[in-house]
Design a protein around this nucleic acid. Structure first.
Lengths: 360, 360
DNA sequence: GTGAGTAGCCAAAGCGCTTTGAGAAATGAG
DNA sequence: CTCATTTCTCAAAGCGCTTTGGCTACTCAC
């Protein structure tokens, strides 16, 4: 009994060392592995007293079932997999992490974890396949949807549940998704600007292959079309969602002959750069030029904190993360059936960056 | 042979369905599981021809070993675990995600993935324990180190390799870490400001229980002490690293009677708020007041993009992520032995936000 | 007292992989 | 031609868990 302290002793004392396994535990208790397992997993055919003894022993030993073994035996692992788009030089993305925070918040409540596979944006299909085949995840989740996204077919062929954040333009919407109504958001925003008398519009958008970018542009175009206006392609930019790109794009657009008076931005991050360009050009935001940005409710970048607070279309990316986790976990646990497809409306919040169009 | 297309056929044809397992694969090939496994894992005692046949079959079937089974059998899982501090209402943290991006970048190169366990910041010890006991990770990594961090003892008692990002003030440094020299960074920054003639200093710091905050403060104090100066506690704030907190803290400090002329910020995020407060007070940055911030090289917040570019102490958080992953993966694969402890120097980069102290 | 029914427990199979310990075949030495 | 080596391959055990299919008592009704 002397020697290594904290080790199992003959009288069935607990040990502090980490790895007790089922077998050892059941031996200590003089029970079979079956019974212990059942006691732990809440099966009814275990005597109340026995169960309590087991639970007590678990507490004392600090026993934790080995997840890999559990996974192997059940096929469930309590984890959801996602692909983290990255590559050397690929900028870290605040949008992604805001979303991740939401996922985490919900996963925490259910003792789930994620398996993050970093992947080159060009090999997401492969990364997903690997993740699914690894047998390490119960469900998959994808985002940054593209038009005609090739990942959808792949996911549908797998037998593992999945959920899409966003949609894939040009693909039959026969998959479970959670998306915001991007088209309506930008339609409404454009409409507001039209009502303020603006006629010349610019759009600082995300990469054109991304679904949300396509839909937002469509929203703008549709609203303009109702007034017989069109969107000048020279006033549209499709770039990565960074402030620098916003700056460059805006600088370029401000040099055009027929300078637009109304700017739509796909993110407050782009707006950050755009506003800088506007300031540098000595233009007054909300007077000389109006701007509406889409606000993902990023922790770091609050539209109300801009020198001139920004008018925005708002939808919390973090809340979307929470919801995605909720649905995915629910599905794995086979709790409820959720609506397959959700489309969230955005809010249009008017602040100081929008004003009546300047006189010609 | 008719019926389900894409299924294995007698002649050993490939199948498109995802889950082929070792047993099936070896049967197709007329080999034992042993041989196939060895062929795949690069053991020498396999005939060259046989190995090539195996590899070919793998390509055709899309066979992927089940990670859970592999894990169970070997004890290695190709994954590193980390705790993601989160809670409902807990703000998403750009610093964390910048770091994560670095981790991902390196993990990608080695086909590793992470297991992210979200945890309430108050239960990180518990979360780590769970993660380790789950048997799902090969190594652990912790960050947001605190003074006398309780997680260290716990990790040391585990048999799983780990790496610390940061250090724990007040604890014997007998654990593997990667840290930047926070004290030197802030010592140097303070010294620069002293040379410019500043006498009254303020420090916008992170939460005082965090190691880096302690050390940075020490750096400032040390530099001041050399000139017989002390840091007025009213001019020190310890807050979460958000721009809003930076704003509030700076507003408060600017109202003090003996207003400081030199500000040190623990992050460009805090600086973002601080600069806003300075602007609102109609003070000229770099003239009326000087500011040096620590720059983690956040994608979104480049000090050179501030209206008045910021003087900074710089060290890339992302690069740290890469390095941490590199070391951890190296250790798991037992490749090289790395230096146990690394302390990176920061760079002091002078831009426009620092200037000669205003005349009294 | 007998048979059906139930409560509580267990032994053993199986999840898909790696690895140990041998065995068969091929090669080389004497 | 024989025996020792080397080369390649395999059967089987084991990783830690869940789950199937009993088995043993015990209770209750008739």
């Amino acid at each position: 009994m002397a020697g290594g302290s904290y080790r199992a002793t003959d009288n069935g004392q607990m040990e502090e060392r980490s790895h007790v396994n089922l077998k050892q535990l059941s031996q200590m208790l003089g029970l079979s592995q079956t019974t212990v397992s059942r006691a732990l997993n809440g099966y009814p055919e275990v005597n109340r007293e026995t169960r309590e003894r087991v639970l007590k022993a678990v507490r004392e030993t600090g026993y934790r079932p080995n997840k890999a073994a559990q996974r192997l035996a059940t096929g469930k692992a309590g984890s959801i997999g996602l692909v983290m788009p990255t590559a050397p030089g690929h900028p870290s993305d605040v949008h992604f992490s805001e979303f991740l925070t939401g996922l985490g918040e919900e996963a925490l409540r259910h003792d789930f974890h994620f398996v993050l596979t970093p992947a080159d944006p060009n090999d997401e299909v492969g990364a997903l396949k690997r993740l699914a085949a690894s047998g390490n995840v119960d469900a998959l989740f994808i985002t940054y949807m593209r038009g005609h996204d090739p990942r959808l077919e792949m996911l549908k062929s797998l037998s593992i549940p999945f959920l899409v954040h966003g949609r894939s333009f040009g693909t039959e919407p026969d998959y479970p998704y959670l998306d915001i109504d991007n088209e309506a958001a930008f339609y409404d925003a454009t409409k507001l600007l039209l009502q303020l008398g603006h006629k010349r519009f610019a759009l600082l958008n995300g990469p054109i292959y991304l679904d949300f970018a396509i839909r937002r542009k469509n929203g703008v175009t549709a609203a303009l079309a109702e007034r017989g206006l069109t969107l000048n392609e020279a006033c549209v930019s499709h770039t990565a969602m960074t402030d620098e790109q916003g700056l460059f794009a805006m600088e370029r657009i401000l040099q055009l002959d027929e300078r637009p008076t109304a700017i739509l931005c796909s993110s407050t991050v782009l707006a950050l750069g755009a506003v800088r360009a506007i300031n540098q050009a000595k233009l007054k935001l909300g007077e000389d030029i109006s701007l509406i940005a889409h606000d993902d409710v990023l922790t770091l970048l609050k539209p109300e904190n801009f020198t001139v607070p920004l008018t925005t279309t708002r939808s919390s990316l973090r809340a979307a993360g929470v919801r995605v986790a909720e649905r995915l976990i629910g599905e794995i646990k086979q709790l409820d059936t959720f609506p397959e497809q959700e489309l969230w409306k955005t809010e249009l919040i008017v602040r100081a960056s929008t004003g009546v169009a300047p006189a010609e």
